[in-house]
Design a protein around this nucleic acid. Structure first.
Length: 488
RNA sequence: GGCGGCAUGGCCAAGUGGUAAGGCAGAGGAUUGCAAAUCCUUUACCCCCAGUUCGAAUCUGGGUGCCGCCUCCA
């Protein structure tokens, strides 16, 4: 069995074989740090995190590189707007990026280069391109000449003569005037008065957007890497231009596999900053949505397809996660990773189905189905344990259960589905805030209700339930006369 | 105009030739003083038309609808 992935470059599903057996070099296009990340970023990085975890689980040594674009127009605009500096804006958003990604249980990249720290590599690359005649300078800017690259357009399947230049309505006329061809793009932008700038053979300025990735890839991973990742909206022009630059300089393929994730949509339209229809990861998490709910929501769809973000779908994912979590947290003797060779037939088959699904271009939707099936009996058992069923205690310690539990944990872990510390804390404090004044009042009412129930005065007991319900407090009776409450 | 993608039950979503995974929601039942939770059971001929085939959601052709990209973008 081999992993098969859809390669945008060839437009087909191909068996994945790294250049060096057992080792995989991955470059993932990161964020421009001018603002908080939204759900589109979350999807992209969750999906690629799963790819990385899966490769590692399958035994590959993965080197994962992800950049930060910490200089560009948007950052400068933001800095100007708030009266701070490019560095302040970048640092703040890089910090925020880590907080959000950590919360989503996305593994940190092995190396995280920043554009402003790779200037040497960038300048060197531009010089090489200039020497090879693939670049030209004009008025302090340096542009890449797309017509010099015979196969320009191979990734996005474009024929330049067929394109409507400026179809996106975003071209700057002053820049157009300096270009030899409308699709030429800036490698180096001359600084405008008052802008932060870096010295260069072409005068003070800063790197264009695309060049940083080419330079970083080469510096961190070499001339030809195994996998290059990014959102589908980066195929053109960003990735096309990366290919043009890198391959013009080295004469070698930049990446062997190009993978792209589908967009997150809202009401059928792409979620984006410019449309203003975005939800930040931060605000979603602060609204009480658990990180794992978001992960599950993302992983229930295939990574290449568009994914519509709706509250209904998110709620469905939340309930789904609750079910998986119940199985995951089953109180059973801890067991190390289950040895595949020792697994009972049913579990071995489940493991195989998981692998086949993931091997099939990361079919996480089908892989999740395996998880849910594994989880089902564990949930039932967890429920019996909670009710104080003593037989369940022995059952939970039995080999079939511990094996199943260990396998579920292992496979869920491959998808990055696990309780985060924060989530555990949230669960632990649930119904235990009696120290707070409001909590004390609630506890008092619960005690009253307990007394009423003992006296078979169910009318009073129900009145208390209703009263608390009005305040958004739900009571849950547990075995042994214990009543818990949760704030809705 | 060019390139690419998508259309499966109430919702989300797998399935790429052999008779429809999974999740959510709903319904019926069990259990519970009530409620929640839990358990059991249950709900589809796959956008339309034509074709290939013993057999198609799955292949081919033609439609229809929707989305992304065409120098901000994950």
């Amino acid at each position: 069995m081999t992993l098969r992935l859809t390669n945008t470059l060839t437009r087909r599903i191909e068996a994945f074989e790294p250049q060096v057996p057992g080792q995989v070099g991955i470059y993932c296009c990161g964020v421009t740090v001018y603002d908080l990340c939204h759900l589109g970023h979350a999807r992209s990085y969750i999906v690629w995190d799963v790819l990385r975890r899966y490769l590692q689980w399958r035994g590959y040594a993965v080197t994962f590189v992800q950049n930060f674009t910490d200089i560009d127009d948007k950052i400068l605009h933001r800095a100007a707007a708030e009266g701070s500096s490019m560095e302040v804006v970048s640092e703040r958003n890089i910090e925020a990026f880590f907080i959000d990604m950590d919360a989503l249980n996305i593994l940190r990249a092995d190396r995280m280069p920043r554009a402003t720290r790779c200037l040497d590599g960038i300048r060197a690359l531009i010089s090489e391109l200039e020497a090879k005649g693939a670049a030209y300078s004009a008025d302090g800017d340096v542009y890449f000449a797309v017509m010099k690259q015979a196969d320009y357009g191979k990734l996005s399947g474009r024929d330049l003569s067929e394109q409507q230049e400026g179809a996106s309505g975003r071209t700057a006329s002053d820049e157009e005037a300096r270009k030899q061809h409308p699709f030429d793009f800036a490698l180096w932008k001359g600084a405008k008065p008052g802008e932060p700038s870096f010295a260069s053979p072409w005068g003070p300025g800063r790197p264009g957007w695309h060049i940083e990735c080419s330079a970083m890839v080469r510096e961190e991973l070499g001339e030809t890497i195994d996998i290059h990742l990014g959102g589908a909206d980066l195929i053109f022009p960003h990735h096309e231009n990366e290919i043009a630059q890198s391959e013009a300089a080295t004469g070698k393929p930049l990446a062997r596999y190009w993978l792209h994730n589908g967009m997150v949509n809202v009401g059928g339209e792409k979620m984006s900053k410019s449309l203003g229809n975005f939800t930040t990861i931060r605000s979603l998490l602060e609204s009480g949505v658990s990180p794992m709910t978001l992960r599950l929501f993302v992983l229930q769809a295939h990574y290449r397809k568009p994914l519509d973000f709706t509250t209904e779908a998110l709620e469905a994912a939340a309930t789904g996660w609750k079910g998986l979590a119940a199985a995951l947290t089953l109180n059973t003797p801890a067991k190390a990773e289950a040895d595949p060779a020792q697994l009972p037939a049913e579990l071995a088959a489940a493991r195989e189905r998981f692998i086949s699904a993931m091997d099939d271009d990361l079919n996480t939707s089908a892989a999740l189905a395996v998880l849910f099936e594994l989880a089902k009996p564990l949930r039932a058992l967890a429920n019996r344990l909670e009710r104080g069923d003593t037989a369940a205690t022995d059952e939970a310690a039995s080999a079939p259960v511990t094996d199943r539990h260990a396998l579920l944990h292992e496979l869920a872990g491959v998808l990055g589905l696990a309780f985060t510390a924060a989530e555990r804390d949230a669960n632990a404090t649930r119904g235990q805030s009696s120290a707070a004044p409001a909590g004390a009042a609630i506890e008092a009412l619960i005690e009253q209700r307990r007394a009423a129930k003992a006296a078979k005065d169910f009318a009073s007991a129900d009145a208390i339930r209703a009263q608390l319900a009005d305040q958004g407090i739900e009571l849950i009776d547990k075995p042994g006369g214990i009543t818990e409450w949760i704030q809705r």
